[in-house]
Computed example of a mutant assay.
Amino acid sequence: MTADALSHGAGRGTATDVDSLPEDSPFGADTVATAREIIARYPQSRSALLPLLHLVQSVQGYVSQHGIAFCANQLELSTAEVSAVATFYTMYKRKPCGEHLVSVCTNTLCAALGGDAIYDKLRTHLGSEDKPLGHEETSGTPGEQGSITLEHAECLAACDFAPVLQVNYEYYDNQTTESAVDLVDALRRGEKPAPTRGAPLTDFRGVEYQLAAGFDTAAEAVGGPSASAATLRGAQLANERGWTAPAMPDNVDLPPAPEKK
């Protein structure tokens, strides 16, 4: 593909069908058809950008310049607009991911309970003592069976089961350095250990397609509850005991908002 075909930086793309895609495009008729189905869900086509970025990741395992151009053309946006979104969110990867994405929570509570130790252990276990694996680096050949991309993640919203990690966004709770090593070793052998809760484990590209295609398409793949008994216990106690939050008084005089300068 030429530099001009990939850039569209100054102008906007024009919605393309499969016949007008460049010869070296990794996106075929199936991807174009899925993109059109996704776009049709939204009153404004540009609102489909986030799922379309997941869609291109499901094909390539990351968001490449080809993926940027594909999204721009399908949504009639500039590649600058698409790139601004793709580089803002950490869930969109700018280099190829492994078969599995392992995310270790290193935020406050997980870190204090062992998350930092787990991340450090996996860095050397998947790399070496002399050359530990870095953030968003991959052990093995990206995309091939047994390859693993490691990242440290901010809060994974599972403090009640800290320390936690995720594989392709599925939860593995109450981890230790030993259990985390056992988990990644199983992934490298081609196994798919069951998550603590949530859907059965798939690979990174598979879950990216589920995120792109939406809940209707992914419903059959989601085979378990994501909420845990411990997480819901407070709400259950409140319901059993009739606890409610104080009602907001009527006709509350709110202070005026400051004028913008």
Rank of each mutant, 00 (worst) to 15 (best):
A5Y: 15
R12A: 14
A15P: 09
D19Q: 01
D19G: 01
L21S: 11
P22K: 14
P22A: 15
V32F: 06
E37L: 04
Y42P: 09
P43N: 03
L52W: 01
L53C: 00
Q60V: 08
G61V: 04
S64E: 00
H66S: 01
G67M: 14
A69L: 11
A69G: 09
L77I: 06
A80T: 07
A80R: 07
V82W: 03
A84S: 13
A86P: 02
A86M: 02
M91G: 10
R94W: 05
C97S: 15
V102T: 12
V102R: 14
V104A: 06
C105T: 05
C105S: 03
C110A: 07
G114E: 04
A117S: 09
T124V: 13
G127S: 06
D130Y: 07
P132D: 14
H135V: 12
E136T: 13
S139Y: 04
G143C: 05
G143N: 00
G143P: 06
E144I: 06
H152P: 13
E154K: 03
C155M: 05
A158K: 03
P163T: 14
Y171N: 08
L183Q: 01
L187F: 03
R188N: 05
E191M: 00
K192Y: 09
P193H: 00
T196E: 01
L201Q: 04
L201A: 00
T202G: 15
D203S: 12
R205E: 08
G206E: 11
Q210E: 12
G214I: 00
F215L: 07
G224D: 11
S226K: 07
L237G: 00
W243E: 12
W243D: 14
A245K: 12
P246Y: 14
P256I: 02
A257F: 09
A257V: 08
E259T: 10
E259D: 10
E259Y: 05
K260G: 04
K261F: 01
